[in-house]
């Protein structure tokens, strides 16, 4: 186990966001979190990363370090692509860093500044930065939210490729059911506030050869949609 949350409560003022929330993540596991807007998905990631403290309960983190792909790219505007990726791990050799840049398809843009890149390119840079940071747990907060469908599919296969070579445990927050189906070993379906896990789905098919038309995928998709329609 790399991370465990037991009976965690989180309040912002009088608003109860999480109530007795418990979950855990195993090594090399990809856990996708789906839920209605404002249910506290990002709060869960902030609690895991230590950016927020729980109001009650226990958050146990067994990872050596945590990496994060934020909703927005959060790149340093005054650093170029190479520097933004290299800065989080200065022990990383130039060759390794350039190879990572190549992997995310930004070869030739190493000297470009974030303002000179498109949204998709910035997000790819942010992904490369997260993978360059030496951590065994990666948190991803709707990282492909602002991208169009084609780019999102491209980014998912890129993420799978990077995950395959590093095998980091990933907690992936998303609104997109398809993203969760293609990436997750487990999908946690959350309720609206105060947030609880409504359902948990396990996907056994290997990530590389998953197709959205597979029977298991169709069944899970249909159950998630039904839950949303029932007003979780």
């Amino acid at each position: 186990m790399i991370f465990n949350m037991a009976n965690v409560c989180k309040n912002y003022g009088n608003t109860e966001v999480l109530s007795n929330f418990s979950t855990s993540v195993e090594m090399e596991e990809v856990v996708c979190i789906i839920g209605p807007s404002g249910c506290g998905k990002s709060t869960i990631l902030n609690l895991i990363s230590g950016l927020a403290e729980p109001s009650a309960g226990e958050v146990a983190n067994y990872s050596t370090a945590i990496s994060y792909v934020f909703q927005e790219d959060r790149l340093l505007p005054w650093r170029n692509v190479y520097e933004n990726i290299h800065i989080v791990n200065q022990n990383c050799s130039t060759k390794a860093c350039l190879s990572l840049i190549k992997d995310v398809g930004l070869q030739g843009f190493e000297g470009y500044y974030p303002s000179e890149l498109s949204g998709g390119m910035r997000q790819r840079c942010s992904l490369a930065r997260a993978f360059n940071f030496e951590a065994d747990l990666l948190l991803m907060d709707e990282p492909f939210k602002s991208l169009d469908y084609n780019l999102r599919i491209e980014m998912i296969s890129l993420l799978l490729k990077l995950w395959d070579s590093t095998r980091k445990a990933i907690v992936f927050v998303t609104h997109e059911i398809d993203e969760a189906l293609l990436l997750g070993d487990r999908i946690l379906l959350l309720s609206s506030r105060p947030t609880k896990i409504v359902k948990e789905f396990k996907i056994t098919a290997p990530k590389k050869c998953r197709k959205l038309a597979d029977l298991q995928m169709v069944q899970i998709r249909s159950e998630i949609i039904k839950s949303f329609q029932a007003g979780i």
């Binding site: 230590g50 990496s67 989080v88």
Partner: peptide, 26 residues
């Protein structure tokens, strides 16, 4: 948000000042 990014990626105090605070003040 950049400060939070620095905290997540374990920037030291010096690095935080050099890479985020001073360029922001420039």
């Amino acid at each position: 948000k950049l400060i939070q990014m620095g905290r997540v990626f374990k920037f030291s105090k010096t690095k935080m000042i050099r890479e985020i605070i001073l360029p922001s003040l420039k």
